[in-house]
Design a binder for these strands. Structure first.
Length: 543
RNA sequence: UGCCCUGUGGUGUAAUGGUAGCACAGCAGAUUCUGGUUCUGUUUGUAUGGGUUCGAGUCCUAUCGGGGCAACCA
């Protein structure tokens, strides 16, 4: 049981909030969701689900200059894809009228004032954490003057940045957020939902807690950087005498070899270091989806990393483990040769073709079987043959035997090289009595390798991904470097593969997740066409 | 040198005064028509010094380390 569950269970025991649980996931629609958000989503929706409560989706859209409906749509899609349904969909902008009224209320009670100082003056007046700030010369205006000025701010009489509404709290507080925080700023910008109705917009601190309050949120779960905002969150709820949700902070997710900053992710997209938000190398939900991660694997990952308050850096191999664990049980097996070299079975009859029976998923008998054509000339992986094989290598070599999966045991006789010394053909003989399923087929051989019939197989494009960054902590930069200096130049390698002939576009897009035997898990990319299938490598098999 | 949060194997996370457990990673072995899966075994840990207690990862205290806070961002 994590610490949030402990708090919630104690609240339920004490009958707080009528023993009900109501949470919310509150993204700002200014970017795409990433794996860190997935953790938050799983916590918020998970707590609601576990304690028979509800979870809302609320867009925290108080800054029109950064927000866009494109992001709203992607966020909705990603949450649904993860497998969660929100009770209600809200927007902080739904509450702009109420928020405005509450602002006037605080002005009337002498708890807020209009400040005419410039941004620099306000910043300077706030002081530094180790020393108190100084009060604004406009701090003690009359209620009437404040009300008049605030209404004229709303009416559009003043330019951007000329005035703000501030809460009157304590310029000497050791908590910087108490040094008369800004509640409203003037922004003559078109909002994605309210259009041009407003030219003043509330700040996060004057919108978030109240939005929670209006929705009857009981447990407002957020990340650690909002911890210092909590006293302010509490202060506004108390000052306004409204329902007071409990803010609880947990440590955000960090992962090795990846960046989670929305700003930097946006930069990668805008400056074309990656091919869009859904590039399979991105830690975004849509990127992971296109990479071939399943919702279950991501949900299980979120469960496995746990919830606590200490900073953490999760090993990316845990995410990969979660992918393999899920995909192993569900992915349909197929044979594909990514780095081909020709194998010729000298004693196999010219022109003969056999249909070999292959198992679709050894972990799931219900998945059935299929047939794969077998002939005299096959493609095998270049790495499955080694001329000078040591004891640790137990695949094909001259005079050595291996099994061709679902087919025969073969023995390598000789190889042919080109002038440059590259192997162009591997010759072997087969034992006709060792066909899979035959009585003599159980002879032990050290290895089984996969293959593709030269005359039957079809070509497909395969996109091989490696980590986007080569540094474990891309943000840990030497003097004069940025995270971009740690970009892995080999994070994307496009290659051509030979795949089974029965793998049609229709079949690939229906099945989606494949295991290319002995290689890894692959996902049928939406770029696939009838002419050319495209597969993304999700993750390799272990080892 | 203000305030807040936080220190448990390599990485995460449990243990709520009573045998430091689990997962990932690593290593070794068994099984296997995937060097996958499965199974077994195994290396590695309570930041440090005092104190309270029959007993401390847990409580007290001091020290040290990590993170956050000074946007008209969220």
């Amino acid at each position: 049981m994590n610490f949030i569950e402990q708090i919630i269970e104690e609240d339920i025991r004490n009958g707080k909030n009528d023993a009900k649980v109501q949470t919310r996931f509150p993204p700002e629609p200014n970017g795409y969701l990433h794996i860190g958000h997935a953790k938050s989503i799983c916590i918020n929706f998970g707590m609601a689900e576990k304690y028979n409560g509800l979870c809302n989706l609320r867009f925290d859209d108080t800054n029109p200059v950064k927000e866009d409906t494109e992001y709203v749509d992607s966020i909705r899609e990603d949450i649904h894809w993860l497998g969660f349904q929100w009770a209600k969909e809200f927007y902080a902008s739904d509450y702009f009228d109420q928020l405005y009224l509450w602002a006037e209320q605080l002005i009337n009670e002498g708890l807020a004032y209009v400040d005419d100082q410039t941004q620099e003056e306000i910043s300077k007046g706030r002081g530094v954490p180790t020393a108190p700030g100084i009060e604004s010369p406009y701090r003690n205006r009359s209620v009437e003057e404040n009300l008049d000025l605030f209404r004229r701010m709303r009416a559009g009489e003043f330019p951007d940045g000329s005035r703000v509404l501030r809460a009157k709290i304590d310029m000497a507080s050791p908590n910087m957020h108490f040094r008369d925080p800004i509640m409203y700023r003037i922004l003559h910008a078109t909002h994605h939902r309210t259009g041009d109705k407003w030219c003043i917009y509330p700040m996060y601190d004057f919108a978030h807690g109240q939005s929670d309050s209006i929705e009857g949120i009981t447990h407002s779960i957020c990340t650690l950087e909002f911890e210092v905002h909590r006293p302010l969150y509490d202060w506004f709820c108390e000052a306004l005498r409204i329902h007071h949700p409990q803010q609880i902070e947990f440590a955000r997710l960090n992962m090795t070899y990846t960046i989670m900053s929305k700003r930097k992710l946006l930069q990668l997209v805008k400056e074309h270091y990656v091919n869009g938000w859904d590039d399979p190398r991105m830690p975004t939900i849509c990127g992971l989806r296109r990479r071939g991660y399943t919702p279950a694997s991501i949900r299980n990952f979120a469960e496995t990393v746990g919830v606590a308050k200490r900073d953490n850096i999760i090993d990316v191999s845990l995410l990969e483990f979660c992918a393999r664990e899920d995909l192993n049980k569900t992915a349909i097996r197929t044979m594909a040769v990514l780095d081909p070299v020709k194998l010729i079975i000298d004693n196999y009859p010219e022109g003969q073709v056999e249909e070999m029976t292959a198992v679709n998923n050894p972990e799931d008998p219900e998945a059935g079987t299929r047939t794969v054509p077998f002939s005299k000339e096959l493609w095998i992986e270049r790495a499955d043959f080694r001329e000078n094989a040591d004891k640790k290598f137990y695949r094909l070599s001259i005079d050595r035997e291996v099994r061709l999966k679902y087919a025969y045991i073969i023995k390598c006789t000789h190889i042919v090289k080109d002038d440059a010394g590259n192997i162009t053909e591997i010759h072997c003989t087969y034992d006709p009595n060792t066909k899979s399923g035959m009585p003599d087929s159980n002879r032990k051989v050290k290895a089984t390798i996969h293959w593709a019939s030269v005359q039957h197989s079809k070509k497909a494009e395969v996109r091989l991904f490696d980590r986007l960054f080569s540094a474990e902590d891309p943000d840990n930069c030497a003097e004069g470097e940025t995270f971009l200096d740690h970009l892995n130049p080999n994070s994307l390698v496009v290659t051509e593969a030979w795949v089974e002939p029965t793998l049609t576009l229709e079949k690939a897009m229906a099945i989606k997740h494949f295991q290319f035997e002995r290689l890894g898990y692959f996902y049928a990319d939406p770029d696939s066409t009838e002419e050319k299938l495209v597969f993304n490598k999700t993750v390799s098999l272990k080892q």
